[in-house]
Design a protein around this nucleic acid. Sequence first.
DNA 1: GTATAATCGAGACGGTACGTCACGTCTTTTC
DNA 2: GAAAAGACGTGACGTACCGTCTCGATTATAC
Lengths: 186, 186, 186, 186
Amino acid sequence: MSTQDGPRKAEAIFAATLELLAEHGYDKLAIEAVAARSGVNKTTLYRWWPSKDALLAAALRDSGLLTVEIPDTGSLRGDLLAVATRIHRLLTSERTAPVVTATLTASPRRPELVDVARSFFADRMAREEPIFDRATARGELRAGVDPVLVMDLLAGAIWFRLLLRGGEAGPDFLEEVVDTVLSGAA
Amino acid sequence: MSTQDGPRKAEAIFAATLELLAEHGYDKLAIEAVAARSGVNKTTLYRWWPSKDALLAAALRDSGLLTVEIPDTGSLRGDLLAVATRIHRLLTSERTAPVVTATLTASPRRPELVDVARSFFADRMAREEPIFDRATARGELRAGVDPVLVMDLLAGAIWFRLLLRGGEAGPDFLEEVVDTVLSGAA
Amino acid sequence: MSTQDGPRKAEAIFAATLELLAEHGYDKLAIEAVAARSGVNKTTLYRWWPSKDALLAAALRDSGLLTVEIPDTGSLRGDLLAVATRIHRLLTSERTAPVVTATLTASPRRPELVDVARSFFADRMAREEPIFDRATARGELRAGVDPVLVMDLLAGAIWFRLLLRGGEAGPDFLEEVVDTVLSGAA
Amino acid sequence: MSTQDGPRKAEAIFAATLELLAEHGYDKLAIEAVAARSGVNKTTLYRWWPSKDALLAAALRDSGLLTVEIPDTGSLRGDLLAVATRIHRLLTSERTAPVVTATLTASPRRPELVDVARSFFADRMAREEPIFDRATARGELRAGVDPVLVMDLLAGAIWFRLLLRGGEAGPDFLEEVVDTVLSGAA
DNA sequence: GTATAATCGAGACGGTACGTCACGTCTTTTC
DNA sequence: GAAAAGACGTGACGTACCGTCTCGATTATAC
């Protein structure tokens, strides 16, 4: 093989990208700054990624920050509570929050980032299906309940509360959300 | 009174601001372009608003785009369905969607816009309370149900589905959401 | 009499003008700053003086900084030495140097200031004539010597040395200048 | 060699600079106008010169306008008369006057221009020394006469007469100056 | 081992928009 | 009804990044 699949210092570039994103936010994320911090020439960045968003998308995909772990606690309530907790952590932990909120809420004007978001949520959903399969097998879930709807309610409430309403989402809130969703779906 | 409460061409400025926002999106919204389109000098904008966000916030507050109408259909289900429909419209109508998504999803890095969002949602909530008061009076709502939680689930699911998951949210979806929330709360 | 010959706070304005000139130099002398410092509205300045230069000219004329004292020491050499010393002081003293160098070297592009300079030097010359009249009466001066030429040589050498060549002009230099001029003219 | 020693269109830039200086005078010399006229972007100018004065200094040094030719007529009087004439021409010719007066009389507040003036006059003086060496060899000059003093008197008188006093300096004046200086120095 | 591609670094550039300053004019209020 | 206050259009400032280009220099693979 002759052609690389990315620049030689890809790791340093991705690291610099995410650091700068976390430090200064999305729109102060400057390609020149990424180049400077990662010790790479600006030209190199443009050679490999056509835009800031494409670079950011690559950095995110590479980072594993968006990796989802799916719980298996033995009950639907336990699983959903665990999922809710992880969503909450994703949105509040110092490590992930800046990156996640900066990129996933990027409006439909940024095709590359929208792709990242779409595939992130699609991937999540695919991995969350087993939770509902197991719950159905256990008889914890009414037939005909749409798992996607359940996740929309669950995740939506947490995102909404935290990012739009600007409120808190303590353990009590998470439990209430799960229980309300469950009693509507079980 | 000696001092004005805004520039003389405030209306033209606000209009230009929202137009350009809708046309090019948040980060291509250039103050120079607003000035040019509204027939005002750039310095005048800076005299009155310290930043792009402050200008945008003022334009939004002035526009009435974020005004909320609260339904009173006679039943909780009818009211919630109407609310859900209006949220959906806010997020998809050609007139409001660009503005709303561009500003309300602005990350926590933009204090002025966050303020707009906060007060928008707080105001909404205050106006939505009567829906729940009436429902309680009618016996349609279990005692102890938190209206805010209900709205988080309802609105969150729609936002999540439309903006993050990038999916559709047809009438069926809205009905399902309302019914699931209701059967969990009533 | 109803019409004033200047604004009520003329003194404060002139003072502010000269202070700012001395502090920041000619081209950072801002009318807005003069207005601010003298507690007067910018409009008032424009009402009375059409330009920065006109204001400055008025301030200078009012200040007395350009007043010339003519010595009478009893000998031509003594008088010229005294004149030379005063020119030197005018160009170097902390009080006068900034103002004088800033305004009198203003190039021909500034009509108002050129007027100030012209009348300053014309006035000087008129007052210096008696030195030469007395010298002629004392027989210290050859007939036919042009006093203006003598002053051009004397003053020119000092200006040139100090401002253009950027050199020093100590007492020895002044004496040498006077003596050379004298031996050429006496 | 990899690094350039100036922008690619340096010549056009210098030309535009001096033209605009001559047309509008020092303080209306705008960097944006230089950029526009020379077909270069504003940022390029700022990349190479930190200030208007630095640019102007470079343009002047490059122009050769300040080049001094030293005469050798065979007599001190002839040489000095030639020098005087050239100084006069420098200060009055349509080509050089605007540039020279605008820059060389720039007050001590402009370090970059002061440097130009200093080195211009220092260079002149170095080249004028031979005039006096030859005169001494010919016995036309008293021993111990300081050539710098002579030049201060000569040049000073002309500058003073023309720029400060705002007068004329015809051939007669130049002759008188030279003769007075000479009879004081020879 | 060395040719020969791919990759990179360095430097310069035109360009857009920024946020600021001071100008000089004009309108509006106030005394 | 004159003077002050305030808002404004205008031009230029100096800066930050953008995205592009041209060259040499450096690495690697592949012969």
